[in-house]
């Protein structure tokens, strides 16, 4: 067996790190929130679908949840995102950029998987737009 097919590799660029798999297998904040802002987003290339719910009161995120299905990266990133934004002030939420999300995910994604990682962030952006209206 060559080095590349050695089943025990764990490289620097390993994207299936323990915490990614943990969030994928045990998603946090999975479910819906009634009377909240919600946005669906999908990635036709691989069929990832998420629906993100965000509830804001007095300028603060008091709850965030999601439902959906897709690859480990998109699901883990969404799960992490809901944890991250809970309790955040609306002003902070607006400032959340691509780099913050990539840092939160914490594994190198590469161009192809970038879309999966940023899927729920794109939904969040749309929610923020709706809230601003």
């Amino acid at each position: 067996m060559s080095e590349d097919t050695n089943p025990d590799w764990v490289g620097e660029d390993e994207i299936y790190k323990e915490n990614i798999l943990d969030h994928y297998k045990h998603p946090r904040n999975f479910g819906e929130i009634k009377n909240s802002f919600c946005q669906e987003e999908s990635n036709p290339l691989c069929g990832d679908e998420v629906k993100l719910y965000v509830k804001v009161e007095n300028g603060k995120v008091i709850d965030a949840k999601f439902v959906g299905k897709g690859c480990a990266i998109s699901m883990a990133a969404t799960s992490m995102l809901t944890e991250k934004i809970k309790g955040m002030a609306f002003a902070e939420l607006e400032k959340l950029g691509k780099d913050d999300i990539l840092e939160m995910i914490g594994v190198p994604l590469g161009v192809v998987r970038m879309k999966c990682g940023l899927l729920s962030w794109r939904a969040l952006k749309k929610i923020i737009e709706k809230m601003g209206e």
Partner: peptide
């Protein structure tokens, strides 16, 4: 239990 995208990413790592 594994999304095809994840299958392909790991298989690609195995060339």
């Amino acid at each position: 239990g594994v999304h095809p995208h994840d299958v392909s990413t790991i298989m690609s790592r195995c060339n």
